[in-house]
Each structure stands twice: as C-alpha cells, then as structure tokens.
C-alpha cells in the first residue's frame, strides 16, 4: 500500500561536532529508516558542514559519524539533498561532499543531491511531518 506510506523529512541546519544535535539526529534517521516511512533529509545552513568529506574526530576523542554517513544508502536513506546556496555561502562545492554509498549495480559512488533553495519550500509542503535534526 505505497499510498499509505508517510513522507517524513529531516532538515539538518546545525554544524557537526560543536554540539550533539547532528550526531543524535543521525540516530533518529537510522531508526526511522527501519520503519515504513518515505524518508528524505535536507542539509542546509550550517548543516552542510556535516556532509564535508574527510572529517576526522579522533583527536577530539569523539566517536563522530562520518563512517555512518558513508553507508546511508545501505540504511535505505538515499534521498539526501544539500542546499547549493548554503554550500556556496560557506565556500563549499559539490567536490567537497562525502560519499553516502555506492550504486548496487555499477558500484559507482553516490553523493548527496544538490538542490536549489527555491525547491525546499515546495518539498516541505509535500511532507506528512518534518523533523528538524
């Protein structure tokens, strides 16, 4: 009953590591992905820093989450979007983005999908509920 599956969106707007929000927010996404819900995640504002390739928290003594982000597609979270303007404002380009998994057939790396800011409002309006993590 695909029409009964609810669309749930997450918006990630906070920077990683300076606070726990992004880390604990990821835990919510991984659990929700196991349920019958159509999950999407939009990274915008300082949230785009969470998608920067090469993060290493070893010297902080913090567990970090870069490894989990690298296999998001395996957790069936493949609708990962990133706001172009937020990246550009912060000096990031598409080349800076980490890989979120690989294509099952071609084994090509999959990266987050870059979207324009004016796409975000209409995407929000389609959701059943939106969580800000």
């Amino acid at each position: 009953m695909a029409e009964d599956i609810k669309k749930i969106m997450f918006t990630v707007r906070k920077a990683p590591h300076g606070s726990i929000y992004v880390y604990e927010g990821l835990e919510v996404k991984l659990i929700m992905a196991a349920y019958d819900a159509d999950i999407s995640v939009v990274f915008m504002d300082d949230g785009v820093f969470a998608l920067k390739d090469g993060q290493n928290t070893a010297e902080l003594g913090i567990k970090g989450f870069a490894a989990t982000y690298g296999v998001m597609v395996d957790y069936e979270i493949s609708k990962i979007y990133v706001d172009r303007k937020s990246m550009e404002d912060r000096g990031m380009t598409e080349n800076d983005l980490l890989v979120i998994g690989e294509d099952e057939d071609t084994e090509e790396p999959i990266k987050p999908t870059v979207i324009e800011t004016d796409q975000i409002g209409p995407m929000m309006a389609e959701q059943h509920n939106i969580l800000c993590f």
Partner: peptide
C-alpha cells in the same frame, strides 16, 4: 489553530 491548518516546520 495555525498548526491545525498547516503542516509545520520548526526552524530550530
């Protein structure tokens, strides 16, 4: 009432 009439996103 606003929540009743609209989907909501909290910009936290």
């Amino acid at each position: 009432d606003l929540v009743d009439q609209n989907k909501v996103h909290s910009w936290l």
